[in-house]
Amino acid sequence: MSTTTIAAAPVGAADMPGARRRRWASALPYLQALPLWLVLGVFLLIPIATIVAVSFWDDQEYALVPTFILDNYRDALGSHVTWSTYVSTLRYAAIVWAATLGIGFTVAYFLSFHVRSTLWQMVLFQLCAIPFLTSNVIRMISWIPFLGRNGLLNRSLMAVGITDHPLEFLLFSPFAVVLAFVHLYTLFMVVPIFNTMMRIDRALVEAARDAGAGPVAVLRHVIVPLSLPGIAIGTIFVVTLVMGDFVTVQMMSGGQSASVGLMMKNQISLLQYPSAAAQAVVLLITVLLMVWAILRVVDIRKEL
């Protein structure tokens, strides 16, 4: 639309013939999008293509041998370790998803329906979003004083008399992994759900209330259904982040827990690139299938 308006602009266009100007205007979007194409092509498409290629290669004495073998996939899919690691990673994803959804939805609901001043809404929303711009590694380290053997939690539990010896399971355990995940990723739920909720027509809520719906019924039949796109986007973020994670599991479980990402990272540090590449392809397919399944259930196109 704006193409025609630019071409039709009468004044100031005098020095450029109409046809040339139109051709320039229609080429412009391609030039503007070219850098994005280049960066994503070189640093996203080609690397993934490289992973797919290397997953069929062989390695001999730490050198990559280009060939076409299926051994890497046979090893990856035939190994009991792979399957149990997937089960443990999927369990993390499910628990973290449920926790971040519960917390994220409640926080977003409070912000959008219970905070009345727009200024306060924005201030409190920023307060939830700012930790995203700080370091994940440091946010994980910051749990040590809480969860450590002599940490705050153990001291308080012992002071209250709930336990008489420090609980060992707090740090370096699956519990710590889940806690850190929830700590790091809840804002990936809060932000999209809040965005969707802010767009819900308040008249619908009023109408439901006038029709006699109580707060719970309004939530169940109006707000939750209309928030689904935001929930879906948050779910995609949280699930893909947990599925591909290696650093949180490594740091917070102290090496006692497994995840697909960590398994790959260990193969990489042993320079077993073809095996790691095959695992990477399996992980990518798993994640894409999960995203596809989420998009089958919820239509998020309105959000984009």
């Binding site: 994005l36 994503l40 640093f43 996203l44 690397p47 993934i48 490289t50 893909t240 690139y273 590449a277």
Partner: peptide, 29 residues
Amino acid sequence: FFGATALFYLTIAGLIVPSILISLGIGLM
């Protein structure tokens, strides 16, 4: 413009593809 949808999905893929794949892929490349 031609390819706009493909470019959009590729951009979203940058968010969804697990970080370890990006890291490994670029390292391997």
